[in-house]
Design a protein around this nucleic acid. Structure first.
Length: 480
RNA sequence: CGGGGUGUGGCGCAGUUGGUAGCGCGCUACUUUUGGGAAGUAGAAGUCGCAGGUUCAAGUCCUGUCACCCCGACCA
């Protein structure tokens, strides 16, 4: 009989999310530090898997990793007007050291455009120095008013790319390449999370950017989660920090910069996209452990025979399948089944005395919870069968998430329809409104324009608010 | 920043008109168990968030304070 330790999604989605985080042993509240969490080993292992997948792609697209200081002179932040306005409310400052006031306070980085800009100005002199393509893995701090584990914490971990280019076109190409070849590719292939890609409106763009592109994922409550952003900063930061270079004609030019990032929020996306009322569901490609083997025995003699069989079964898994044998003696098999379901291990293999006798195992897939996802299969060919099953789970998680998004996305042509649609999901609408109009809709419906999608309709239509004919569609949703 | 809530063994909670702290889970040992969250027996574990105050006596009443959590507006 299952203990009801996880609140049902349908009952209270937010509480369900918190229950998953806690019960899957991903994180603890830091408690003594407001809005911060402790990444427990299980949660951190997921972050490491995310880092691996992203780092690989970041390097494949020509970038190198570097590291800049955590503290930034406060004056740096004020050099770009929009930027300081955007971040000022949430930056923490270091004003004293050893009981003595500092001449100039430092801020704890909320993002690193400014301090990196400072150094880039020193590094970039010639067109031959460009493009400069650097990524940083770091922690940042934003003192947000409202926090939630992984989705929004005072301190979070992320990668932030910062690049410098000779032309606007190159900067734009970089911005889009990161969005498509790094972020979309990673989320859809590794995390099995389908995303919408597009441009942010003026209201929603990054403080100080020329243009912001973003990917948006749909969570199981129909709300949007901004999963990654890529900014074309134009020449705003280059001007503020004096990043200039001499071109082929010996003329001084202001450079073009970009920045882009994804954070530990992706762990939240992962949880909310796939998990169910039984617990966490991890996509096999990202799961720190893909298979758990549960040996079952009563007598010492059975124990020996079963563990021998387990050794034989898993002999050729090394290097092919990430697995763990759960041979803890003090827990019953039933307890282990539930615990591993809670923790989201994609596949479970059970080996008992009957299996040793019959040359079989029980094979259970996490994406079909409970006994429904379990079948008895021969030990022969098991490795290949599991590999195929892992691939199948990966695909079906993506397909399921995509189908969910499609089912919860509607094209709307009136404000009434929009209001209804954002209750349960995404709404596509023609839009020619102003920034103020957008704010008004946010005030009324709690929904924002998540993205102006890249894929736009052939025909034009009437703006949902103003009635004006426009070729532009946008996607509205409530967001995390 | 607005609204609400909570601080009591590791976790979740109870604690009546004030009388010196209890329950469930977990933990430790042993025994019997183990194919969908096992049971018995015996143990260990709490300056009741903090600081004042009232009182013979405070987890309980009063004042102050701190912290955290949840909901909302703002943000990766």
């Amino acid at each position: 009989m299952p203990k009801d330790i996880i609140t049902l999604r349908a009952k209270d989605y937010s509480q369900w999310y918190l229950d998953i985080v806690r019960n899957a042993d991903l994180a603890d509240y830091a408690e003594v530090v407001r809005g911060c969490i402790v990444f427990k080993p299980t949660g951190y292992a997921i972050w490491e898997a995310i880092q691996r997948g992203l780092d690989e792609r970041i390097k494949e697209t020509g970038h190198e990793n570097a590291y800049f200081p955590l503290l930034i002179p406060k004056s740096f932040l004020t050099k770009e007007a929009e930027h300081v306005e955007g971040f000022a409310p949430e930056v923490a400052e270091v004003t004293r050291v050893g009981g003595v006031d500092l001449a100039e306070p430092y801020v704890i980085r909320p993002t690193s455009e400014t301090i990196i800009g400072h150094f880039y100005a020193q590094w970039v002199h010639s067109w031959r120095d460009l493009p400069l393509l650097i990524n940083q893995w770091a922690n940042v701090m934003r003192w947000e008013m409202r926090t939630r584990p992984f989705l929004r914490t005072s301190e979070f971990l992320w990668q932030e790319g910062h690049t410098v280019h000779a032309t606007e076109a190159e900067a734009e190409e970089e911005t889009l390449k990161i969005l498509n070849d790094v972020y979309v590719d990673f989320l859809e292939k590794e995390m099995a999370v389908p995303v919408l890609r597009g441009r942010k409106t003026e209201k929603e763009k990054f403080a100080g950017a020329l243009r912001t592109y973003a990917i948006e994922a749909m969570m199981q409550d129909g709300r949007a989660l901004q999963a990654g952003t890529s900014h074309n900063l134009g020449q705003n930061f280059a001007r503020a920090f004096d990043i200039k270079f001499t071109d082929q004609n010996n003329t001084s030019q202001v450079a073009w910069t970009t920045s882009w990032g994804v954070s530990t929020r992706l762990i939240g996306a992962l949880i909310m996209a796939h998990s169910d009322d039984e617990g966490l569901v991890l996509p096999p490609r990202l799961a720190p452990k893909q298979v758990v083997v549960v040996p079952i025995y009563k007598t010492p003699d059975e124990r020996v025979r079963v563990l021998e069989a387990v050794d034989k079964i898993t002999a050729d898994w090394k290097g092919r399948i990430r697995f763990r044998v759960d041979d803890r003696d003090n827990l019953s098999p039933g307890f282990k089944y539930n615990e591993w379901e809670l923790k989201g291990i994609p596949v479970r293999v059970e080996v008992g005395p009957r299996d040793v006798e019959k040359g079989s195992v029980a094979l259970a897939r996490r994406d079909v919870p409970g006994k429904a996802g379990k079948e008895f299969v021969p030990q022969e060919g098991l490795t290949e069968r599991i590999e195929a099953l892992l691939a199948d789970i990966q695909t079906s998680l993506f397909t399921r998430a995509l189908a969910f998004r499609n089912d919860h996305t509607v094209e709307v042509s009136s404000m009434g329809e929009l209001k209804e649609a954002v209750e349960t999901g995404f709404a596509r609408a023609y839009w020619a409104g102003s920034r103020e109009d957008e704010q008004k809709i946010q005030d009324d419906l709690k929904a924002t324009i998540r993205v102006i999608p890249f894929d736009q309709p052939e025909k034009s239509g009437k703006c949902i608010l103003t009635g004006q004919e426009t070729g532009q569609q946008v996607v509205f949703a409530r967001a995390y």
